[in-house]
Amino acid sequence: PEAADLRALAKHLYESYLKNFPLTKAKARAILSGKTSDNAPFVVHDMKSLLEGEQFINCRQIPRQDHHRHLNVSSVQSDLQREVELRFFHSCQSRSAEAVSEVTEFAKSIPGFLNLDLNDQVTLLKYAVIEVLIIMMAPLMNKDGTLISYGQIFMTREFLKSLRKPFSDMMEPKFEFSVKFNMLELDDTDMALFFAVIILSGDRPGLLNVKPIEDLQENVLHSLELHLKMNHPDSLHLFAKVLQKMTDLRQIVSDHVHFIQLLKESEINMCLHPLLQEIMKDLY
């Protein structure tokens, strides 16, 4: 009966994951490997293609005829280039803020989460959301680039590296993490449980009532351990390897927050989305 409960928990979290997150790993991998019936993503590999594609960023559906539209941009001037980079950064922020809401809805569906002290719910989310967003990006990435805009656009890693500093340094650590993380070959059912484990971390600073959080996490950890054994019978020590990723994640998040602070100082026209500002303030 206990194993049945743990399996039911895994099923419940997977269903909530499917309900709350628009682009699953299964769909992203199908797009990246060209095995989807939909059209291939629009590729952004330089400033010209970014200008062509930017009107579709954060659109769930690209009007297909526009794929072949050509802008007459022979050389993008540097001030225009700065503007385009900043606009792109703002659209990344809006998508991130939307994803924070998705993670929040997912957290609320974890059995027992809404019974925790409200202050602790806020603290758990504040510390977990960027970690979860970084893991959510991994299935969208391969060594050459990343899907964005719900899988409608593929942006190359080289292009992201060619942006001006500090934008150019921002995504490289996420690619390095993702390439390694993807080697674990987790699927969407594994990811759903892993997200819940991350959210229910009892060691976040400022928590008021740690015990009920640890109790909830222990239950999800048991469910994850059992699920990984059944889902990946040949993958040795997978449970331990997955948990180890949580340490790497904390460093990536702390570096990310540092990047954003640098940006705030160096970019006069930069305004940070209020929700992201709230999350990053006094985070690390």
Binding site: K19, V100, T104, N119, V122, K281
Partner: peptide
């Protein structure tokens, strides 16, 4: 929670599926 007004609101909002 006052310094996290938006997060707080997101937590308290009932999701569309819950009516």
């Amino acid at each position: 929670t006052e310094r996290h007004k938006i997060l707080h609101r997101l937590l308290q909002d009932s999701s569309p599926a819950d009516g």
